[in-house]
Design a protein around this nucleic acid. Structure first.
Ligand SMILES: [Mn+2]
Ligand SMILES: [Mn+2]
Ligand SMILES: [Zn+2]
Ligand SMILES: [Zn+2]
Lengths: 138, 138
DNA sequence: AAACGGAATGAGAATTTTTCGCATCTTGAG
DNA sequence: CTCAAGATGCGAAAAATTCTCATTCCGTTT
């Protein structure tokens, strides 16, 4: 969390933006809605307006600092971009999320976009199911 | 569009449900939001309340008659289930959607769910990009 | 270090999407 | 045909997100 990270992303290094970036970097929870970020920051004593959370997360997304996900819950979920792209498998019972990367799938996706004449800009793969834990408890 | 289709799905064959199912079956547009279904039906002289559209589409989804998609627009998009499962490639410029099915990807998904200890219930793959048409117009 | 201009923030209002509550109307069983 | 359970419509309410605009902050220039 350096002001330079924001500068590099073409964003002014403002206090709210620093706080949000810091929070995301230090949070053990990797996938959070804007509302969740807002509340968690409040509890941590970092008071940033909800509208600003929304604005900044969207700016971070545009700058490539975070990824926005559209799971089945009907609201956006954000994740700080560390390292490389990955996809998600989500438990529909408890919300537990695991990440994975499959080169074969990635390659097929590029091939399909090409075949269809698209310039691929992005892609998202979500697998839904019941996690091992929830299966046991059933 | 038979009352039997609804009965089979465990739903009473009510007039609004019949109208909505008919509309979906006869619509040239395959992927529509609740609002779009509502407006299109109004124009077609079939007046069904918006709340009912939402309720019925959700019931149809539960019954397996339609699929609900979560594209990047922030609202649900519905599609009548004809034949078999498929995934989508969406143009981020014009909204054009093409469908595809890739056995290799499907198989890898099952494998991944298995490896992670999940009982897979569903999955969604969205590829985003610029379609051939929009590339030309750029 | 003070000043300035443009950009960012906060708070609440406003939008957008979806759900709820309840009085009224239908459907399907008997 | 009658009746109860269930469905619909409408407007109110929720939930998620964006917008407005007065105030504040950041970065650059004196
Ligand atoms: Mn992730
Ligand atoms: Mn489709
Ligand atoms: Zn679980
Ligand atoms: Zn296009």
């Amino acid at each position: 969390m350096q002001t330079s990270d924001l500068k590099k992303a073409g964003l002014k290094a403002t206090l709210p933006r620093m706080k949000i970036l810091n929070f995301l970097e230090s949070s053990r929870v990797r996938h959070m809605s804007a509302e969740e970020v807002y509340k968690a920051m409040l509890e941590a004593g970092e008071d940033v307006g909800l509208a600003t959370i929304y604005r900044v997360l969207t700016q971070f997304e545009t700058a490539g600092l975070v990824t926005r996900h559209h799971f089945e819950e009907g609201h956006s979920v954000f994740e700080l971009n560390l390292g490389e792209h990955h996809d998600h498998i989500v438990c529909v019972k408890c919300g537990h999320i695991e990440e994975f990367f499959d080169p074969t799938i990635e390659e097929r996706q590029h091939k399909i976009a090409e075949e269809k004449g698209f310039d691929m800009t992005d892609h998202a793969l979500y697998i839904y199911g019941i996690c091992a834990q929830c299966k046991k408890e059933a």
